[in-house]
Design a binder for these strands. Structure first.
Length: 499
RNA sequence: GCGCCUUUAGCUCAGUCGGUAGAGCAGCGGCCUUUUAAGCCGUUGGUCCCGGGUUCGAGUCCCGGAGGGCGCACCA
């Protein structure tokens, strides 16, 4: 806890401790409670009794619910309160006549933030508010810390991230977003499981973090007395499982990349990777389109559109498709052609022309040009297909055009949503591409991973033709919930430790 | 790493030209048995992010530092 508690805050805490002692003195010790029989939720009750007219009650049916008291309006011998549980909020009404003098006195020592269990029946107040008329209650916990402003909630962004529990208590929109995230991931699993995939877990601690271009976090394993790296992708281990014959596998898990932090990057984030033996990239594209359409429907209340800023994005299928080099040419008025981009010297010249710094490698240059030239135009969901092999070290070549990989990326709102390809399963080609990466590393591109030679050996045992996909879950949730910062779709985003 | 913005009561925020700290909510004491940002009366509460400097005097101006946000750079 924060050691520097201000005087005002200390007084507020002291007052709450006095209330606690008074409750204990009347043998209603909040912290002595172990459980409470709950048979309803706030949202359920409000929905179930929607038919009640103003002033009408349903006193024949009693319900018990529990949650946090978020408001208290004392009117002499009666009290209105607001109870919040995980489903939402419902108003409470307590009368001295109903609960008795001794019990009513407990409410003097209850305040915003406390945890209560209540039993009673529903009615609709004169003003039309669905309300639980409380006939009995228990104090289930005491908040010793004062909650933020009841109207403005918690606005201080830093405190919201550092003390997310407070943010979630008082800011309903934050709760809604996090609950929607959970529902969307759950729906994603249901969709995938329904197609015969096994969910698997592969190691987070690795000797060589591969499968992507990123700097890893480095740590040390005491038992082995060896340096370890945190994974930057799950790709290579999942493909080992394809070699092993599991045929359809996926993992939803944390990935760690020791790089910058901004509105679309957090050092640890959640990735879905999925591999299907005997599929090719076009099977994956269809799967991807269906999955995204399904999630849009969940997030968008059954529709196929999502609000994005002031605009609306349609996810009506089929999504747009454009070839990588076609797109580059189109959005450069024909200046950046396939031949030019595939020439390392010309690619560096284009970088200069765009005012970008020189790249440590040809592949890096292509990515920079793509981000500048094409990506900003990809607002509607669009599959960009046919990536150059030189930036696709793990993808299979197109048979008809060996400079290109059978790969696509799905973009939306200027953000990369997924990356998929027919997997390279020729061990000799894979070994050659790893060797090319060693040269890139030597050339100064520190993002290029160290080769994982055991992965080549795995391919030497034979991997069936396979398609794979990676989806950055956090960015997808941002898109689906209309959040502008990755921190607003993560429960506990990374913050610098206080000095 | 660079630039801009920001940090005042538990929370949300004012604070003019440099003149010695304000409001609402919360809390505390009252009144009130259908209110809902309840209302009415009274009232407590401050490391103005930290450290220097200028000044008779700094929340305010200057320098340095820290946290946070945004943008750029970085980041498949």
């Amino acid at each position: 806890m924060d050691a520097s508690v201000g005087k005002t805050e200390a007084q507020l805490v002291a007052a709450r401790r006095e209330h606690l002692e008074r409750l204990r003195a009347r043998s209603s010790d909040p912290f002595a409670q172990t459980k409470y029989p709950v048979d309803a939720s706030a949202a359920e009750l409000v929905a179930r009794y929607a038919f009640l007219e103003n002033g009408q009650d349903a006193s024949a049916e009693a319900w018990s619910l529990a949650g946090r008291l978020l408001g208290k309006r004392t009117m002499g011998k009666s009290i209105f309160g607001d109870l919040q549980d995980s489903s939402g909020r419902v108003q409470l009404y307590v009368r001295k006549d109903d609960v008795g003098e001794a019990s009513f006195a407990d409410w003097d020592d209850l305040e915003r933030g406390d945890l209560v269990g209540v039993r009673g029946y529903m009615f609709r107040s004169k003003m039309g508010e669905p309300t639980l008329h409380v006939t009995a209650f228990s104090v289930l916990g005491k908040a010793l810390m004062p909650l933020p402003d009841k109207w403005h909630g918690l606005q201080d962004v830093e405190k919201r991230y550092r003390q997310r529990y407070v943010d979630l208590i008082v800011n309903p929109e934050v709760r809604d977003t996090m609950i929607m995230r959970s529902r969307l991931i759950s729906e994603m699993r249901r969709f995938i499981d329904g197609r015969g995939f096994y969910e698997v877990e592969t190691p987070t601690l690795l000797h060589v973090a591969g499968g992507a271009a990123a700097r890893p976090f480095v740590t040390h394993c005491n038992a082995l007395d060896q340096t370890m790296q945190l994974r930057i992708a799950t790709e290579l281990n999942l493909k080992r499982l394809i070699v092993a014959g599991l045929e359809r596998v996926y993992e939803i898990g944390r990935i760690f990349r020791n790089e910058g932090i901004d509105t679309t990057h957090n050092p640890e984030f959640t990735m879905l990777e999925l591999y299907a033996a005997y599929w090719d990239v076009s099977d994956m594209m269809e799967f991807n389109e269906e999955l995204v359409a399904r999630l849009v429907s969940v997030a968008g209340d059954g529709g196929d559109e999502l609000a994005h800023g002031d605009a609306t994005i349609s996810f009506a299928r089929p999504f747009a498709r454009i070839e990588y080099f076609e797109g580059m040419a189109r959005y450069s008025e024909g200046k950046y052609t396939r031949d030019g981009l595939l020439d390392a010297t010309e690619a560096q010249r284009i970088l200069r022309e765009l005012g970008l710094p020189p790249s440590p490698s040809h592949g890096h240059a292509l990515d920079k040009i793509f981000e500048r030239v094409l990506e900003p135009h990809l607002t509607a969901p669009t599959f960009v297909t046919g990536y150059p092999v030189l930036i696709s070290p793990l993808a299979k070549r197109r048979e008809a055009d060996p400079a290109l990989a059978d790969r696509y990326e799905l973009f939306c709102a200027g953000m990369e949503i997924s990356n998929a390809f027919t997997e390279l399963n020729d061990p000799d080609d894979q070994r050659a591409r790893f060797e090319a990466q060693i040269a890139q590393r030597a050339g100064g591109d520190e993002e290029v991973p160290e080769p994982d030679w055991d992965f080549v050996r795995a391919l030497e045992y034979g991997m069936p033709p396979t398609a794979g996909i990676g989806i950055g879950i956090d960015r997808l949730i941002m898109l689906l919930t209309g959040q502008r910062s990755i921190r607003d779709v993560m429960l506990f985003p990374l913050q610098r430790q206080h000095g």
